[in-house]
């Protein structure tokens, strides 16, 4: 034996790339910018899980989010926007998990159950959010006054600052 193969674990890598492709398919067809950004995103996520580095995975997922947003601005149906956003986050999470798990346990170890639980719970959070916000959207967020999104921005800001302060 020459060494421990600490490459990213296979199943999570496959999930990451598959999720990235889903995000690409859901947002790409609606806009040129979306096509370019999410295409680049898929490529970067793939590079990241092949080389075992976090930075390309993060950058690629950011590209996917940009693609989804560009698609949203170009009037992609809300279901696709939600699906794309969740898929982008799942790609990021699965890619990072594959890299960390690969580094700690390597490819030779049996890790399927752990990966299933982790990716499954991330996907579940995404699906619940998507269903909830789709319901919200149908009730008429699209026609509400600007005060609502404004308040949501403030809410997001506060929570984001709280998170960055809290995790330091």
């Amino acid at each position: 034996m020459t060494g421990v193969d600490r490459g990213p674990t296979r199943s999570s890598s496959v999930v990451a790339v598959a999720a990235a492709i889903v995000a690409f398919l859901l947002s790409g067809p609606y806009d040129w910018v979306a096509l370019a950004a999410s295409g680049l995103g898929v490529a970067l996520v793939a590079v990241g899980v092949l080389t075992g580095r976090h930075a390309p995975v993060t950058a690629g997922s950011a590209g996917l989010v940009v693609g989804v947003l560009a698609g949203a601005v170009a009037n992609t149906p809300p279901l696709f926007v939600l699906g794309g956003a969740v898929a982008a986050v799942v790609a990021w999470d699965a890619g990072g998990t594959a890299i960390d798990l690969g580094n700690q346990l390597g490819r030779g170890a049996g890790t399927t159950r752990l990966e299933l639980v982790h990716v499954g719970s991330t996907a579940l959070v995404g699906v619940v959010t998507a269903v909830g916000s789709l319901a919200l959207y149908r009730t008429g967020l699209g026609r509400a006054s600007m005060a609502v999104p404004m308040l949501l921005v403030v809410a997001a800001l506060c929570i984001a600052v709280a998170l960055t302060v809290g995790s330091e």
Binding site: A72, V89, V125, P149, L152, V153, A155, I159
Partner: peptide, 21 residues
């Protein structure tokens, strides 16, 4: 993006982000 582009569907992305955060 949702606020600036006045595009409600983009806000949905923000909601996904909040829920993961």
């Amino acid at each position: 993006v949702g606020v600036l582009a006045e595009q409600a569907t983009a806000l949905l992305v923000g909601v996904v982000g909040i829920s993961y955060a």
